[in-house]
Structures are given as C-alpha cells and as structure tokens.
Amino acid sequence: MTRIEATIRDYIQQSFLDGGGAAPGYLRGDEDLLTLLDSLQILRMLMDLEAQFDIKVDNSELTPENLGTIERLAAFIHKKQLDSAYKSLTP
C-alpha cells in the first residue's frame, strides 16, 4: 500500500465511515468507491484531496477509471503529481 493510498483510506474512513460510532471496517484498496460513497461525498473528497495533494482535477478526468477505487485514485493522484512536477521542470 502506498502512502497516498493510506492517506485516502484514512480520509474516507474518518470523513464518511466512522460516523455513528460504527466499528471501523477495513476498507479494501479495490472496494468500489462509487457504490460506497454518495455523489456529495465523492465531490467533497475530490475537493479535499485536491487541496491536500496540491493537484487540480479537470472535469474530464472524473471517470470511474480514475476515481473508482482507492488504488485507482491513488495511482491517478500520483500521476497528477508527477505531471505537475514535470511541468514545473520544463520551461
């Protein structure tokens, strides 16, 4: 599990799943987030992760391939970070 995955998992767990004092269930990396979270939660998560990882997600990138699971989301965020690092290096 990557550091980004762990951060996302903690975020989802704390923001959306621990409420109500439910025993925190283990959230798998390949769990379907689009079923687990409602659209409002996905939107909020997106905005918070954008701020946390200092990335900007374009509306065209809102796809199940990029957001569907913690693993995919982590890979997507990693790629965004690499892209922006690359952009900052190239004149």
Partner: peptide, 11 residues
Amino acid sequence: DFPKGLAVVRT
C-alpha cells in the same frame, strides 16, 4: 449521469 453530473455541480 456519473461523472458528468459531478462535473456540472463542480462547475
């Protein structure tokens, strides 16, 4: 439909 609806709200 997802994810277009999300994009509308974000916009």
